[in-house]
């Protein structure tokens, strides 16, 4: 574990996905874990109409010193967590840089234009190649498939958080996770979320 030192200050995280995947919840949980460690955290979120099938993004700024802008400047992300693989590419195009790390789910959600046959959806191997070409490292995890094995696809976001913790760039410990989850979810949901977090962490370390 990285102690309470940040690799950069502010440390910039983007969590991205498609409306309905639990983007907002993931960003809240992550931010609250970091606040417990004494950091200033700013979250900027896309809400409202964009939740209806659109691309969504949460920008997290983590700092020892100050509150930062809820929007990360272009090209300045340190890590991108993508709950949907092509969203990783969309975010990299604007916020990527040669040092950025990417942790992405592999499960596609087809946009309406793809369902209709007007647009092409790239094959996952192509997406992996693209991401690896413009990041320092990109990890791809079958988070939704693993979540389905746990019994609920929505746990994909927690698996992805677990994977992010596996990078060891941030002091994200399991006990903080348990506390934060216990504050926001009913007691009978805590164990399954803990399991999802551990699973994600393990998958990244593989």
């Amino acid at each position: 574990m990285a102690g309470t030192q940040l690799p950069n200050d502010p440390y910039n995280i983007i969590i991205t996905g498609v409306g309905g995947q639990g983007n907002v919840m993931a960003s809240r949980v992550l931010a609250n874990m970091l606040v417990k460690k004494g950091f200033y955290v700013t979250i900027g979120e896309t809400f409202g109409a964009s939740q209806r099938g659109g691309s969504v993004m949460s920008h997290l700024r983590v700092s020892k010193k100050d509150t930062w802008s809820p929007q990360i400047p272009k090209g300045k992300a340190h890590v991108i967590v993508a709950l949907e693989p092509t969203e990783a590419i969309r975010v990299l195009a604007d916020y990527g840089n040669p040092d950025v790390k990417v942790v992405s789910n592999t499960r596609p959600i087809h946009p309406a234009g793809v369902i209709a046959g007007d647009l092409n959806y790239p094959a996952i191997e192509e997406t992996k190649k693209t991401a690896r070409g413009i990041s320092s490292h990109a990890w791809f995890i079958d988070a939704t498939d693993e979540a389905l094995r746990l019994g609920n696809p929505i746990l994909g976001n927690i698996i992805m958080l677990g994977a992010l913790s596996g990078l060891d760039d941030l002091p994200l410990d399991k006990e903080d996770f348990r506390e934060v989850i216990a504050e926001s979810l009913p007691q009978n949901k805590v164990d399954i979320n803990m399991e999802a977090f551990d699973l994600g962490r393990g998958l990244l370390k593989e």
């Binding site: 209806r52 099938g53 659109g54 590419i89 195009a93």
Partner: peptide, 26 residues
């Protein structure tokens, strides 16, 4: 904000690598 050659690599990516998501009913 980032090296020119990197920026060049991302040109067009948002279009070809990430199909647009129009708003849809749930």
């Amino acid at each position: 904000p980032r090296p020119e050659e990197y920026a060049a690599k991302t040109q067009g990516l948002a279009f070809f690598g990430a199909p647009q998501r129009e708003l849809i009913f749930c």
